[in-house]
Write a protein that binds this DNA or RNA. Structure first.
Lengths: 400, 400
DNA sequence: ATATTTAGTCCACAACGTAGACTAATTGGA
DNA sequence: TCCAATTAGTCTACGTTGTGGACTAAATAT
């Protein structure tokens, strides 16, 4: 429920307001900030002074547009102090990204590993090494890592950080959060959700969309008005188990005819006879050569995706649909059939069918979204960073 | 985006906090309020004084639990001052409800009319008369009607108050909001959404659930953490067009095999040969007599509902599913098959399948939800009511 | 040069919540 | 019966924060 508003909360709110505007608009003078926030110049000056002192914001040189009057001094987000860690465990790679407060990517580490054949503990230990060395390097560059988030391909209990079931990895009930102790506030979440947030903050994208993550399973992350929809328990977005045909092939979820059985990576690659990223590359090259079998596989998957998405559009009303994961490289060959299917199934009811676009970030989306989530949190509540300034305590745990 | 926090916003926030606690807990002493809100006794006393002066809250007699110390004076929501209007247009009736600030229903008016055979303007004119006489009576009883909301069976553009398409009524692009001018701030919304809110505030229910409204069309309202999920444009919840079978019977939406074609009122009543509420009553009595045709119709509908709900659960992760509308009287005969279908399709993936329960409110849900929404708004921002205290201006328009 | 315009700071002030002393009203026990 | 203990609620001095307008600073236009 709502919280008591005291003077400190008032200040924190206004601090976040100012920092949010600076973050959203790039750079602004104090006068412009006063205008957009509705606060007085006096108040804005004080708030900006605080933000400068904390190192979240810096003055740039004065900027002039040839207008009359005293030129204003613009301030912008300071990127060389605060940063966040974005991590991802996926089937055939581990990824680490460090993103600073201005949302620039400061460090990229990706390691190709076959995580399916390894034990969860070993995978996590390897990620831990990778992450710690990235943190070291970032700290060496003067950055302070205030927190991190980890993307995992499967539903996660947000409170405990336990991965219930990651079929791609073959994991069941792995307590990832407690195994991966980095001495930082950490947060574990579904890959599709974080990839959606990555698309929101680092992609070209709109602020309302459904991100579809095609892997062995198919997940989705729904962003409405710039924030993630998680459902009652945080397990929303399991697009892969939306029913395409009620008496279709059995699915590992216990159901039948789930989307995953038609458009999941395994179904797609059935025509190539190979699994994993090798198979995917083969499929892409075959489809480029207009191999009829491969093209048919794409059309079949695209049709099924269209059917499942028509249900989804009816239920959650997304503005745009962004295809990522394996659907990104195959986009040119599934785009048409998906749109067509959607159009024929929704066209009469809706004024407009949501446009289908391709993810720009590729496989980086989830790790970036993970780091971005921590950055977002700092920008949404910079005051939280003020208190632990004297001791070198990290940010308090990130709760969903 | 966020708003600047000034002293008045701080006060407004705390006022809402206190009023919200009183509303949620029934009645509380100032000392107890200080404890639950985290504010000091001093502040709570001042806030409560304001609320009493505005007539939103009253002191009850002192209450004692046999404990030591000075007894506290409890305060509770005052129900005899502020009230809201809830309206509903449906196929065969018009409904008006007046609900006071303590969420007691003060006035019920229902009129049986066949709205399908009448022109939209006439239907709205008739509702207008009904509503105005209800307002008169309420005002005569000393109540001040601060706003209203209208439930319509079909998707509504929340901004303009235009009903795009209400198949049950045969309406297309009717500007309901501007036609129904009551001299009150008014708000038009989808029946399923408002029924869900009715269930939230007036039902037994939980705070996280999916309300399924079975009529000729099938709609749904999703409530997460006590608030309604509307999607990007407010058209979320069109459960009736979730795909049950991709090559099933054609649907008026342009698609094929939509849930509506299997479990909508028309599909259900096909066995009785009669339409409307008469047909429904016939079906219920036939199913009670274990008429095999009627039982089969229910099983068929229940199975389809289970299939569509399994997609829905995967996508939006509701905690509970509440069946309303035509599904309420038929509940005993569809309950089993829905749960069974859901269980077999979700059981392996999820720890628990959301329980299926029946709506308690019956056909009243939407009108109550409509009024409740206005009441909720007052409780969430009582300060908005303070300003127009001297002039007799109504509440500012209710924006979604 | 001087008027005009815009940016940013300074200062007295108002709004609000806080802390703790103080008064009020009750129960338990000597 | 009366007093200590306990809890409710009010009162007052005070701290924090935003405001409004005067004031200073730095540019352009004439």
């Amino acid at each position: 429920m709502a919280q008591a508003v005291r003077h400190d909360a008032m200040r924190a709110g206004n601090l976040a307001l100012v920092l949010g505007e600076v973050s959203a608009r790039g750079s602004l003078t104090r006068a412009a900030l006063a205008e957009v926030t509705g606060l007085t110049k006096t108040t804005v000056s004080k708030l900006v002074a605080d933000l400068i002192e904390t190192g979240l914001v810096v003055e740039t040189g004065a900027v002039r547009g040839g207008e009359r009057g005293r030129p204003g001094v613009e301030v912008r987000i300071r990127g060389d102090r605060v940063a966040a860690l974005g991590l991802e465990i996926n089937v055939d790679y581990l990824a680490v990204r460090v993103v600073d407060l201005s949302r620039s990517v400061r460090l990229r580490r990706t390691q190709a590993v076959d995580n399916r054949s390894a034990q969860p503990v070993d995978v996590i230990a390897r990620l831990r090494d990778l992450a710690l060395s990235a943190v070291d390097e970032a700290v060496g560059n003067g950055l302070r890592i205030v927190g991190g988030a980890l993307a995992v391909p499967g539903p996660v209990d947000l409170g405990s950080g336990v991965v219930h079931n990651a079929p791609n990895l073959g994991w069941r009930d792995v307590p990832v959060l407690s195994l991966l102790d980095l001495g930082l506030p950490l947060h574990v979440e579904n890959e599709a959700n974080l990839a959606a947030l990555g698309e929101l903050w680092f992609g070209s994208g709109p602020t309302d969309f459904l991100y579809v993550s095609g892997e062995i399973g198919i997940g989705a992350g729904l962003v409405v008005a710039g924030s993630l929809f998680r459902g009652a328990r945080g397990f929303a977005g399991e697009l892969g188990h939306v029913v395409v045909a009620p008496d279709g092939p059995p699915c590992r979820c216990g159901g039948q005819g789930c989307l995953e059985q038609y458009a999941g990576q395994d179904a797609l690659l059935r025509s190539t006879g190979q699994a994993g990223s090798v198979g995917l590359m083969t499929l892409v090259s075959r489809v480029k050569d207009q191999d009829p079998e491969a093209v048919a596989a794409c059309r079949q998957a695209g049709w099924a995706l269209g059917v499942a998405l028509s249900s989804t559009v009816n239920l959650v009303d997304p503005d745009t649909i962004v295809l990522g994961g394996v659907f990104a490289p195959l986009f040119p060959w599934i785009d048409g059939i998906v749109t067509e299917t959607l159009q024929s199934r929704l066209g009469q009811m809706r004024l407009s069918v949501p446009p289908i676009v391709v993810s720009r970030l590729g496989f980086e989306a989830a790790a970036l979204g993970a780091a971005g989530q921590v950055i977002e949190r700092v920008i949404a509540d910079p005051a939280a960073l003020f208190q632990p300034l004297q001791p070198s305590q990290p940010l308090q745990p990130l709760q969903p």
